[in-house]
Amino acid sequence: MNVLIVYAHPEPRSLNGALRDFAVRRLQAAGHRVQVSDLYAMRWNPLIGTQDSLAFEAGQRFDVSMASKQAYESGTQSADIAAEQDKLRWADMLILQFPLWWFTMPAILKGWIDRVYACGFAYGVGEHSDRHWGDRYGEGRMSGKRAMLIVTTGGWESHYASRGINGPIDDLLFPIHHGVLHYPGFSVLPPYLVHRAGRTDAVRFTAICEALGERLDSLASTPPIAFRRQNFGDYEIPALTLRDDVAPGRSGFGAHVE
């Protein structure tokens, strides 16, 4: 399997850095081919701008989606964007690894998504009609590929429980799982979570690695989160709301999981 790890932490000697190195070793030992996009080490530019299109004309109004689509279709994207898209095409498995900062991914990783997920590549694809509203939410360029998050938090596991003060972790990660990953077609595996990251000693680190190793060993067989697919009958099109007979009485994020 080809595995791409997109890694977002500024300190290589951190717990995240150690887990990334462990993951690479474990995957390679199992015969997988691994690439790592270390965003801080790469000095990745997270800001969308006119520099993303080599053919953008000075003085022209900058329409983000249109400029992105034109650059993608004409082969005039900046080299850094095109290189990351090539890695995604190559990958059978995408792992996004990051610390949970202010209830979401670090800005540099969000900026990777913003720029690499170009219009025509990760969104804005497929037929849009009264029966099919684009190739997304279970369809799209990333169909047939798998994805998983490796996430560390500073808080306790109980802080992210169903009644925890930070909110349920599944709800916090829903925009990433459902939006960033399921939207362009990935089959999304349950995340690997490490809570109380700042309270990790050698004994606990060994246990964390053992559990992570088990998850990495089963990447191909772990059942994905059962997100509903947009164009397969559960949703009214073009309203894109669940049909009345689907998950009656349910609403919110959980209604979009079978």
Rank of each mutant, 00 (worst) to 15 (best):
Y160I: 08
R136Q: 15
G140T: 01
S129E: 00
G111I: 13
T104P: 00
G111K: 12
P175F: 07
H178Q: 09
A118M: 10
W112D: 14
G185S: 06
I165H: 05
H132W: 11
L181G: 02
I113G: 14
Y137G: 04
I108D: 08
D135R: 09
R136Y: 10
I176V: 15
V151D: 15
H177C: 02
W156A: 06
P168N: 05
W156L: 06
G144I: 06
R163F: 04
S162M: 01
L109I: 11
L173Q: 03
E139G: 00
P106Q: 04
Y183A: 09
K145V: 03
V180Q: 08
H128P: 02
V188R: 14
I176W: 07
G154V: 03
V116S: 11
V116E: 13
L109G: 10
F103P: 14
H159S: 12
I169R: 03
L109E: 10
D130Q: 07
E157K: 08
P184T: 06
I169L: 09
F186N: 08
T104E: 02
L172W: 12
D114Y: 12
C119H: 14
I108G: 12
G144T: 10
P184A: 03
G111E: 11
R131K: 09
R136E: 11
L109H: 08
I150M: 13
R146A: 07
R163D: 11
S187F: 00
A147D: 14
G167K: 11
L181D: 05
E139T: 00
G155W: 04
G185N: 06
E127R: 07
L189I: 05
M105N: 05
I165R: 04
